[in-house]
Amino acid sequence: MPKHVVFDVVGTCVSFDAYFARIENVIGTKLHQHAITARHFGYTWMEAAELEFTFLSISERYKPYKEVMKAVFYRTLWMAGIDDPRSFATDSERDQCIAGYSELKLRDGAKECLEKLRAAGFTVWCFTTGDIARVRGYFEKAGLDMPLANFVSCDDQKIAKPALAAYRSVLNKFSADDEKWFAAAHMWDVSAAKSVGFKGAYCTVYEKEPCLEIFDTEIDVMADGLVTMAEGICQASIA
């Protein structure tokens, strides 16, 4: 029986550390003068972008995530307490910060995680809100083969996760009898995928707190690291 694991990439296989470091390098000194850390601003900026990205998709006005992120930069500075955001930072500085996304690196254990799954007979897929060229580049820079045909972007269907239709578009690539897993470090991502028929594997490496009290589902595998998550998937598959 064919076996598949679909991974979220950014935040799960890939760490945001390089993005936070780029913000620190570009506007960190100015942020510190307002008692704002680069990590907190970077997280808030991403969350604001994801909110608008999702709302636009729900209202059937889908825009690529990178366009949304660019648009909400100054608004996020304003919400962080910067009185005059457009005097605080320039478009060039904004674009330099966004470019930090292209420098993201695979998390520790990501390569071993995927190798373990492949050795156990799983085909590995990637499902992302990002553009495929950039996201595939993270694997290429790490020397890890990830076939282009195994990437799916929300841009393809113009439907953003966590809309259930987005997950169904991936699930429908597989046969009904195939073993199908969805793996992520975002509980909202895994729990939504579970609701359309995937088995779910969650890693706490990014969010730390799964906040299970607000997600109405039972996760099949939960682990603190990517390697142990892969081992859990393999064990559950054998069982």
Rank of each mutant, 00 (worst) to 15 (best):
F16V: 03
K30F: 15
D95Q: 01
C211Y: 13
L77F: 00
C13W: 05
K208N: 11
H186M: 04
F73I: 05
K199Y: 12
Y202W: 13
F127N: 06
G81C: 02
I82R: 03
T12V: 01
E67R: 08
C97R: 00
C211H: 13
N25L: 12
G137V: 01
W125H: 10
F215W: 14
H32V: 14
S195E: 13
C13T: 07
K116T: 09
D17F: 00
A119R: 03
A163S: 13
K66V: 14
D145H: 13
Q96T: 09
F88M: 04
C126G: 04
W181F: 00
A99V: 03
V72N: 00
I159T: 12
A230F: 06
G28A: 04
E179D: 12
T44F: 14
H4A: 04
Y167N: 12
W78M: 15
T129K: 09
E24A: 07
V6S: 01
S153H: 04
T128Q: 06
I23L: 03
R75L: 14
K63H: 07
V227P: 06
G81E: 00
I238Y: 12
A119S: 03
G109M: 05
E93K: 02
R107H: 05
D131Q: 15
A80V: 01
A71G: 10
Q235N: 08
T217W: 11
D145E: 15
D84R: 11
I23K: 02
V72D: 04
A119V: 02
W78R: 15
F53V: 03
A149K: 14
V190T: 04
E112Y: 09
A133P: 06
V9P: 05
E209L: 13
C126N: 05
L148C: 10
V14W: 02
A223K: 02
I98T: 03
R22L: 02
T76K: 01
Q96S: 09
F139P: 04
A49P: 07
I27V: 03
G200K: 09
A183S: 07
I159G: 07
K180H: 03
T37M: 07
R136T: 14
V124L: 09
L56H: 14
K199S: 10
W125A: 06
